[in-house]
């Protein structure tokens, strides 16, 4: 069994959504959340924060979510960093593509902030041991 989920690296370019997610995860879920507003910032924060899970927006300027994940996993010790994507594009084909890139799951936007933590827990616990 894994460590309980505590530290989540959250990458999102939209400040409003950042706020909502941070509130939802910290206040409702009780997690420790590091918010980065770009892939570059996330890579920078990785070694310092050492997250257990990356929660990534897909469509971001500069570096998109899958690329960010690729970069994160290039870092030493994070080769198998679990990740969950959040996206407004929820067509089955798109979801399948994202899942094929090694994500635990995909959370559709908009989401219910009150159940977001529970959803993360569910996906976290379903990952391979």
């Amino acid at each position: 069994m894994n460590m309980p989920l505590q530290r989540i690296l959250y990458v999102e370019d939209d400040p409003s959504i950042q706020t909502v997610v941070k509130l939802a995860l910290e206040l409702v879920g009780g997690y420790q959340v590091e918010v980065c507003d770009s892939g570059r910032a996330a890579v920078a924060a990785l070694q310092r924060f050492r997250p257990q899970l990356a929660l990534l927006d897909v469509m971001m300027p500069g570096m998109d979510g899958p690329t960010t994940l690729q970069h994160l996993r290039e870092q030493f010790g994070f080769e198998r960093l679990p990740a969950i994507f959040m996206t407004a594009k929820v067509q089955p084909a798109e979801v399948a593509v994202l899942k094929s890139q090694g994500a635990l799951g995909v959370i559709a936007k908009p989401f219910d902030p009150m159940t977001l933590g529970g959803e993360l827990e569910r996906l976290w616990s379903g990952q391979p041991q």
Binding site: A24, L27, P110, P113
Partner: peptide
Amino acid sequence: HELRTPLTSIRGSLGLVAGGI
């Protein structure tokens, strides 16, 4: 998609407020 992004904030914020956060 573009509608969804602002809606995510609205939906999320309202959800948090309604949730008593």
